[in-house]
């Protein structure tokens, strides 16, 4: 036994460090996920102790529901708009703050500030901002004599998604900015010094030095922001409740409605399983793409 321990001491120590974390993940993440998978094949209503297994009925029901196409469209819209816009804005802000340096701390605090609020609070703030009767946007437009420009930003199918995206970007840009700043701080300054001696412009430096050297941070941010937007719930729920109709409904909101308003836990779990598969597929696809890009730069 002693001999075995002496030979495997480092493995045992490693396992001892990892096991508590694995136990937490197993009990609080994997087990509930597996149970969710199980319930996705039942007609459990969330209250009754009894339920029946209904095969793939819940999956069929969810996929054939009138809102499913809209959910897919909303998901693609958020990924297509939110992920690039958020990353471009946060990266440019990071580069500017890193270059300017003066008052950098203050800028970081201001931009990061929304991130310390609860998403619910942010939702309420933006709900007031967008209110077409007494919100600040409406008041400013009224003062400018452009009262007719004030819209029900959250109540129209054409404006709700961009309006919601703006509030999400406002909330989260600080977080991604910090990761980009972290990435920028790892770039050796002498590279920039050599480049400036060569006489390259600010844009050339951005294009040929900063972007390639930030590729790890870009990968992390794109993947994390894609997962974040695919599973987002709090802010859209408070801001729009998924409306008008299904126009801003995310998959997570739809899961909530199935589970707790419509009392169809089975359908909710089925959609949760679908969301997990979609998120996994998109994440793996992005990782593959970005890893190839990173390898090309290296």
């Amino acid at each position: 036994m002693r001999v075995w321990y002496r030979n495997n001491r480092s493995a045992v120590a490693g396992a001892a460090f990892v096991l508590p974390a694995l136990a937490v993940i197993g009990v609080f993440f994997l087990y509930p996920a597996l149970m969710s998978f199980r319930y996705s094949f039942t007609n459990w209503n969330g209250i009754s102790p009894d339920f029946d297994y209904v095969g793939w009925d819940n999956f069929r029901y969810v996929l054939q529901s009138p809102q499913f196409k809209q959910l897919i469209w909303n998901t693609l819209f958020l990924i297509g708009l939110y992920v690039p816009v958020l990353n471009i804005i946060s990266m440019l802000l990071a580069v500017l703050i890193y270059d300017v340096r003066r008052f950098a701390g203050m800028y970081k605090v201001i931009i990061y500030l929304p991130n310390i609020f609860s998403m619910v609070v942010v939702g309420i703030i933006w709900k007031v901002i967008y209110n077409p009767v007494f919100g600040p946007v409406a008041l400013v437009l009224e003062k400018l004599g452009k009262e007719s420009w004030a819209q029900d930003w959250l109540g129209q199918t054409a404006t709700v998604m961009p309006a919601m995206s703006l509030s999400i970007v406002w909330y989260s840009v600080g977080f991604y900015l910090m990761i980009y700043l972290g990435g920028l701080s790892t770039i050796p300054p002498d590279i920039y010094e050599s480049a400036s001696i060569e006489g390259i412009t600010w844009f050339q430096r951005l294009r040929y030095l900063t972007f390639p050297l930030l590729s790890h941070a870009i990968t992390i941010n794109i993947v994390v922001s894609a997962i974040g937007i695919l599973t987002i719930f709090d802010l859209p729920f408070v801001l729009t409740g998924g409306g008008p109709g299904f126009a801003s409904q995310t998959m997570a909101i739809s899961i909530y409605i199935y589970a707790f308003k419509s009392m169809q836990q089975g359908s909710a779990m089925a959609l949760a399983v679908i969301l997990t598969l979609v998120t996994t597929a998109i994440t793996l696809g992005l990782l593959r793409l970005l890893n190839r890009r990173e390898a090309a730069h290296e």
Partner: peptide
């Protein structure tokens, strides 16, 4: 990634 993505399911699991 799958472990992390289990989060949305976790909130819905009631047993």
């Amino acid at each position: 990634a799958l472990s992390l993505l289990a989060v949305p399911l976790y909130g819905c699991g009631n047993d």
